[in-house]
Design a binder for these strands. Sequence first.
DNA 1: CTAGCGTGTTGAACCGCTTCGACAACCCGA
DNA 2: TCGGGTTGTCGAAGCGGTTCAACACGCTAG
Lengths: 336, 336
Amino acid sequence: MTTIDDVAKAAGVSTSTVSYVLSGKRTISAPTRARVERAIEKLGYRPHAGARALASARTNVIALMAPLRVGVNVPVIMQFVAGVVTRARDFEHDVLLLTQDDVGGLDRVTSGSMVDALVMMDIEADDPRVPVVAAARQPTVLIGLPQDPEGLSCVDLDFEAAGRVAVRHLVRTGHTDVALIGSPPEVLRRHTSYAERLMRGLRDQARGAGVTVTVEACDATPAGAVQAVDTLLATAPDTTGIIVHNEAALPHVLARLAERGVTVGTDMSVVAVCPTDVALAQRIPMTSIDLPAEDIGKVAVDMVMARLGGDQPSETRLLAPVLTERESSAPGPAAS
Amino acid sequence: MTTIDDVAKAAGVSTSTVSYVLSGKRTISAPTRARVERAIEKLGYRPHAGARALASARTNVIALMAPLRVGVNVPVIMQFVAGVVTRARDFEHDVLLLTQDDVGGLDRVTSGSMVDALVMMDIEADDPRVPVVAAARQPTVLIGLPQDPEGLSCVDLDFEAAGRVAVRHLVRTGHTDVALIGSPPEVLRRHTSYAERLMRGLRDQARGAGVTVTVEACDATPAGAVQAVDTLLATAPDTTGIIVHNEAALPHVLARLAERGVTVGTDMSVVAVCPTDVALAQRIPMTSIDLPAEDIGKVAVDMVMARLGGDQPSETRLLAPVLTERESSAPGPAAS
DNA sequence: CTAGCGTGTTGAACCGCTTCGACAACCCGA
DNA sequence: TCGGGTTGTCGAAGCGGTTCAACACGCTAG
């Protein structure tokens, strides 16, 4: 393995000079720099990450804790991950992947100085991991909103606003009886905050507009969708507008509606809350509120890097929802 | 930050003794060990990963290169990843996540001594990454089979055998005209080896059994599935057995067959090559050849760890396919 | 009684890099 | 001409571990 000393020798300078060429923390004359760079090139030198971490107290690695359990929204999770990884690379950082349940891993990587910072996905209202990372010396950004952020930064789609926007859209297009087909029951039971925030926004707006709103949980299986749709059509037969917030169930919901003779885009208006590519991959292009998963991942990294640099205070960023109208929208009974 | 010296002081021993307690590489008397362990506990000591890596030339991290691009088989990829991460933890290793396209990352993490070993997914026949990792000093295991493994270990499902098993199943149940609905065209164009291996096994077995076989590529979209199914029904109307090797397209293929009035499990026998949970999540439980993604990930880690320990030679492990009959199987015209 | 051995512990070198303080060389203005 | 500031380079002290050679000690065997 070639070391910094080899490079120094080859270039006829001291090791510190090589180090300064690499880091740019001191001015180096052009000719010297050139000699060093040539030597680095020739020897194929790469600094030893461990040595660097030891000496500089910087690892250039961030930890990402992601839910790998096979479940509801795998493709969405992938987009978050992709966003985090690509943006981290922009900051010359690599990503260490932790699984959601590995709470001990948080202490391992922080106390062991394996990472400079952390990003944690899929935060629940009362998440046991939050106090752990709050106590770490590395900055952390949460994707999602816990009840008490304990001084940590958070980023997420503004689901409450999304709920309002969805209802507003339906009301404006003439609907007076709307419904939500949402997350699976176990997600709701976990008090995953996004589900509750969406519902809050939705009910607020509905109340303000004098509109009824029915809520159905929905398992992300064909059977779950069948049940949710059938129950909805039975208990709230006047429903003409449905908001679906469940990527995995969406195709099954649409399929069941079709089976029940309900034509989406004519008899029924459906607004999906999901990534745009999911909205476009359905049998018809769905009117949707985008869940910009990759962007959120990137923002999370931006935020965590900002905290690494200066000592900015923690902040919470809620991204404004954007609704795009496509073919699943239909005028409602109250349409003018 | 508490260091090993703090622990040594607290326990009244030398730093080397603490180190040996931690590593177990030297015998330490029970009382001494107890004192040290108590001190570690009390101080909440964690060895500094960088220092350890520097001194021991071991990072306890492996790199995993996974395709994060949003595409065909995201959930399957997740399963591989989950397998790798959980098994790595069994070996006290963490996982550094690299994206498929980050070829430079390979050199970065290997030359920079960031990792002890690598696992690479989604290997293509003529994969540019293979020579890079073959030249690295860290052992690598490939998930998939390149044309020339260059001395690297490989692991994968035995897709060739899977092709044979699938055809054998169809033949045995009375089918004489079978088809493959396979990967998207661009996957085939990339010469991803699993697709070609499956086709080889399939054609071999079909030839031996005197059975015709039609092949359709298929985009993982509703439209792609429509086209594949329609083309198939038009060009090979006698087909009574279909093998689907495309997780993402599977539901759409089934939907289109239904739309065309073809009843799977009666008029048509369908064998899926996919993870079991995907097979079970369809409108009817599918007869399938399991793609044991999580297991493959685990085996990959086992193999790479074995090479880290001793200097075992490289090996290629192809997991035997297992076909499970479910409700999508139907007797064919030649059934006795 | 001593040589020889095994066991448990230690001191110190070393891993490869960063960074601080020192210094030589040069240029400026007084 | 000289004091004082820049600019570019260097030496050496860590950073926090691992590991090797050495050694102290208590035993056993000769």
